[in-house]
């Protein structure tokens, strides 16, 4: 009788075997759930509040500092925003990504999920997209609030520059999310994954730049070497690209920036896009391979 009740809840297509949903549908299902979970999570709320709050502070300070002169091309606002994005977005994306797989594995959820008619790639992509949606929402809310304040204060900030900043921040977030997810698939435990993600953040934000600075000065590095090395860092790529978008040149970055503009010219966008794309695709692909090879338990 109980069985009958259970059966009646579902329309059973008897006889013909049902075909499992395709990749796209499963990815959508999983990403929807992941997104829902993410935006309810404490980390999302805290990061969003921190990002928007700091951004608003920067906007207000810079609006006061220019004395409402209404002049603004490239100034403290954009620089401050870039700085803020460089600090907050990678940390958020890396830790979000790091939590994605490892904690599920630790709590046995991954095993349960994979016992359903889904593939590992679907689970990975679904989680990635869901988290990406949450990050997009966080970035848009934060930068949108800042742009609102700037508009209200009558600052002449270029709307196109704001849009570029938002788009590139999202690009950076995707790259960092890929790295976080890779860390997550490699790490044995969730705590290890998050720790590694924070370490990766420190490395990308501070250690690599400071090391490169020291190295460049100590080894008397040539400008093209310096530029080539700095393009390896997705954070630098984000920074240079947003500057380029706001200013149409990189000469604000001194000789190295000038070199980049002269050497690559119109191809600079392609170069940056390529680097960022590589940082998005390669770690994600590596994560997919790792996940398919590793046992989910």
């Amino acid at each position: 009788m109980i069985a009958a009740a259970i059966h009646s809840g579902i329309q059973v297509t008897s006889g013909a075997e049902r075909v499992p949903p395709g990749l796209a549908r499963n990815v959508m299902t999983i990403s929807g759930r992941e997104l829902r979970d993410a935006v309810r999570a404490r980390w999302f709320v805290l990061y969003t509040l921190a990002f928007a709050g700091l951004g608003l502070a920067i906007s207000l300070v810079s609006a006061t500092a220019t004395g409402g002169s209404g002049l603004a091309s490239f100034g403290r606002t954009t620089a401050g925003m870039i700085n803020l994005v460089l600090l907050v977005v990678p940390l958020m994306a890396l830790t979000a990504g790091a939590g994605a797989i490892a904690s599920d594995r630790e709590r046995g959820m991954l095993q349960y999920l994979l016992a359903q008619p889904v593939s590992r790639l679907e689970v990975l992509l679904g989680k990635y997209l869901g988290l990406a949606g949450a990050l997009l929402s966080c970035i848009c809310l934060g930068l949108g609030a800042c742009a609102g304040v700037l508009a209200w204060k009558g600052m002449g900030t270029d709307p196109a520059a704001v849009l570029w900043l938002a788009g590139l921040s999202f690009g950076l977030a995707l790259a960092m999310l890929s790295c976080g997810v890779l860390i997550s698939t490699l790490a044995g435990r969730a705590s290890v994954a998050v720790g590694t993600a924070v370490f990766a953040w420190l490395t990308l934000v501070f250690v690599s730049d400071l090391g490169l600075m020291a190295g460049a000065m100590a080894l008397r590095m040539r400008i093209e070497q310096l530029f080539a090395l700095s393009v390896m860092n997705p954070l630098q790529v984000f920074k240079m690209w947003s500057l380029h978008a706001a200013d149409a040149s990189l000469d604000v970055l001194g000789p190295a920036g000038l070199y980049a503009t002269e050497e690559y010219g119109k191809w600079l966008h392609a170069l940056f896009a390529g680097c960022l794309l590589a940082w998005i695709v390669v770690p994600l692909a590596a994560a997919a391979v790792t996940l398919s090879r590793r046992s989910p338990i």
Binding site: L35, V39, S69, G70, L71, A72, G133, A134, L136, S137, C138, I139, C140, L141, G142, L143, G144, A145, C146, A147, G148, L150, A151, W152, G154, M155, G156, T157, D158, P159, V162, L163, A166
Partner: peptide
């Protein structure tokens, strides 16, 4: 002059609104 900030402020406000709409929409 206070630069040409009038027009820009409007587009900037529209940009702000657009971004907030995307963020809120996802939520």
């Amino acid at each position: 002059a206070k630069a040409e900030s009038g027009v820009r402020s409007m587009t900037l406000a529209a940009t702000a609104f657009g971004l907030l709409a995307i963020g809120g929409g996802v939520l």
